[in-house]
Amino acid sequence: MMFFNGPKNEPVLCRAFPTYLDGAALLWFSKLPEGSISSFEDLARSFIDYFAVSRIYVHGSDYLGTIKQGQHESLKDYMTRFADATVEIQDLDPTVHLHTLKAGLRPGKFRETIAITKPKTLEEFRERAAGQMEIEKLREAQKSDKQPHRRDEEKTFRSPGSRDTKRPSKPTSKYNTYTRFNTRRENIIREILNAKIIKPPARAGNYQDQRFVDRTKHYAFHRKFGHTTDDCIVAKDLLERLADQGLLDKYIESRKGKGGKLRQSRAQASSG
C-alpha cells in the first residue's frame, strides 16, 4: 500500500509506515529523536535493528533429526508432529525429509518393514504408513470394545470391603490470566529444554490415568497423552513463572502493562 501511494516518494513512505504500527512498535516510533531519520532506508534499518531480538527462531533441517516417535505415541501423531516441524523449514530437501522421518520411528515391526521395503520417496513411505495407521486404529477400537466388559467384571468380582482407588485430581492453575506469546507454547517448551533453561520433569505427570484419556492428543512436556502441550496446566504455569522472571521476553510481542508491580501482585496472588 505504501509503495502504491508513492514508490519513490520518501516523505510518503516515512509518513505511511507508522500508520501500520501498534503496541511496542508504535511506542518505539514515538520515541525516535527528532531529525534522526533522513530517508525511508534509515527508518527501515532502525526498525529492523531494534526488533531483531524479537524474531521468532526458525529451525533448520538438522532440527528434524531430534524428532523421535514416543514409546506410546501413535504413528499418526508422530507424522503430524513431524509435519508441523517441516512447515517451519524453507527449501527442505525431500531426501533429508524422508531420511529423518524414517530415522525417528521407534523400534518395532513397522520400522523393520520400512527397513526391508526401503521406500525411496515420501509418497511411498506415506502409502505404507497409511496401512500401519489403519492397523493401529483397528487395535484402538478393539481395546475400546473390551474395556467396558472388563470394568463390569471388576465391579462384579470386587470384594465388599475393598475401596475404589481414587483417580489423582487434575491440577488447578495458579494464574487467572496467561501471557500471550508470539509462538506456540509447545515450541517454547522444546526450545528452552534444548537451551537447558529448564530441566525435563523427573517424572511424568500422573494426574491423568492413561487408561481414560484421549490418545489422539500428546503433550511433549510430560510425554503423556490426554491433551496438548498448549493446554497442559503444569507447562502453562511454568512458562508464566519464567515470563514473570523476564526469561521469555523474546516470545512476547509487548511487555506493556507487565511491569514489576504486576509481576509482584501475580506472585502474591499465586502464593495465596
Rank of each mutant, 00 (worst) to 15 (best):
M1T: 03
F4M: 07
P7D: 00
N9F: 07
N9T: 06
R15P: 01
L21W: 02
A24R: 09
A25G: 13
L26E: 09
S30I: 04
F40H: 01
R45V: 12
I48R: 13
I48N: 13
A52W: 09
A52Q: 14
S54G: 06
G65Y: 05
H72A: 14
H72M: 14
K76M: 00
Y78T: 03
F82E: 11
V87C: 08
V87G: 04
D91M: 11
D91W: 05
L92N: 05
D93C: 10
V96A: 03
T100L: 07
A103G: 00
G104V: 00
L105H: 01
R106P: 01
T113Y: 06
I114C: 00
T117M: 13
P119W: 00
E124V: 03
A129M: 04
A130R: 06
Q132Y: 05
M133T: 00
E134Y: 08
P148I: 03
R150P: 02
E153R: 13
G161K: 13
D164K: 08
K170P: 04
P171M: 07
K174E: 14
K174D: 11
T177W: 02
F181E: 06
N182E: 06
I189E: 03
L193T: 02
N194T: 07
K196E: 05
V213T: 11
R215V: 11
R215Q: 12
T216H: 10
T216P: 05
Y219V: 07
Y219K: 09
H222D: 15
H227Y: 14
D237Q: 12
R241P: 00
G246E: 12
G246Y: 09
K250H: 14
G257I: 09
G259V: 08
A267T: 14
S270M: 14
